[in-house]
């Protein structure tokens, strides 16, 4: 072992033998959050931009974080030179072109963008769409990168007084350009446990990331059961119902339950909030992987319900949609 170099932006930081990356950064007065320095609190988690970090420095991180080369600076004793980033992917933008725009129902727009260079993304992640004046909103990627490496689809719900969605409905046209950030978020599919059962619960446009995840799982030959629960108050809030039903015909391990929480009952729909229906349908979630996307209250309650039903916390992936602000993991 000898001196290793850590590259951070345009700086080069020397990491002495027996020093962790955290020690080296702090010695160079780089402001990095940290607390326990023993790999427990995870506050010093950062990302390697070139090589996979040493396995010991990824101890306790979820598989998607490991997959994206995140690691704990306090546990990382570099085995080679490293390039690291303390920045978030939201800081980097790429230009795209609108190639399609159509309605999925009266207030849900399907927008398709084409990237000039293929984007490294995973279905279920989200990007920030940025209008030329700088107005930004987060939207989940609804398609599967294996089928479409250079195009991205989004479900844009028309919000009352929604600055961005109104503009996207009224003014944005095929052929226009739009900047998008690097993909963010950890709520996506990994083909590492093909036999694991999956439960996906979404409200409203929370279907978008779930659709991408389902598409990728089926494409990867996922063998475990895949249960989708899509909920809204009224039937008008659901969309792609026929497409989902067709998918259940096509794949034996895919199950779809549209849920309506309003008083009116319609044939073929479960009554109740999607997460309540989902939890009462399945007795134990031990060893399941759970995906929750949509209304923050649903996500918050369903996380706890899934955990109490036996799912491990690291198997619960969630993306709560906060209207008007950035989508928050």
């Amino acid at each position: 072992m000898s001196l290793k170099t850590i590259k951070l932006n345009d700086r080069e930081i020397a990491c002495q033998e027996d020093d962790s990356v955290l020690d080296a950064l702090l010695r160079d007065n780089i402001d990095i959050p940290n607390n326990c320095r023993k790999g427990v609190c995870q506050s010093c988690m950062i990302r390697s931009l070139d090589n996979a970090p040493p396995a010991a420095s990824q101890k306790g991180l979820t598989d998607v974080l490991q997959h994206q080369n995140y690691f704990l600076a306090c546990l990382c004793y570099p085995e080679q030179d490293m390039t690291i980033s303390l920045n978030k992917p939201k800081d980097f933008f790429t230009e795209t072109t609108v190639i399609d725009k159509k309605l999925l129902n009266s207030d849900m727009l399907l927008l398709t963008l084409k990237c000039s260079t293929p984007l490294d993304y995973y279905a279920g992640q989200f990007v920030n769409l940025k209008r030329h004046d700088g107005l930004q909103r987060s939207y989940s990627i609804a398609n599967n990168h294996l089928l479409n490496p250079d195009s991205l689809t989004f479900h844009i719900r028309k919000l009352k007084d929604g600055l961005f969605s109104e503009w996207a409905y009224q003014e944005l046209a095929v052929g226009d350009t739009l900047d998008i950030s690097d993909p963010q978020g950890l709520c996506y599919y990994l083909p590492n446990q093909l036999d694991q059962n999956l439960m996906l619960i979404g409200t409203g446009s929370g279907l978008a990331p779930l659709l991408g995840i389902i598409s990728e799982a089926l494409h990867q030959g996922h063998r475990g059961d895949i249960h989708l629960f899509h909920g809204s108050r009224e039937i008008e809030g659901l969309y792609l119902i026929e497409e989902m039903q067709q998918l259940t015909q096509q794949y034996q391990n895919f199950y779809y339950t549209p849920c309506l929480s309003s008083e009116t009952l319609a044939n073929g729909f479960a009554k109740g909030r999607a997460h309540d229906v989902a939890m009462s349908n399945i007795p134990s979630l031990k060893d399941w992987r759970i995906y929750l996307c949509g209304h923050p209250d649903m996500v918050h309650q369903a996380k706890r319900q899934a955990f109490l039903k036996g799912s491990a916390i690291q198997n619960i992936y969630a993306d709560a949609f906060h209207v008007g602000t950035a989508s928050v993991k």
Binding site: C41, Q42, K303, F307, I313, I316
Partner: peptide, 14 residues
């Protein structure tokens, strides 16, 4: 936040 709380529980149990 459950994930953060679980990390705290782990630190407490440790």
């Amino acid at each position: 936040d459950m994930a953060k709380q679980a990390a705290k529980q782990k630190a407490f149990l440790t």
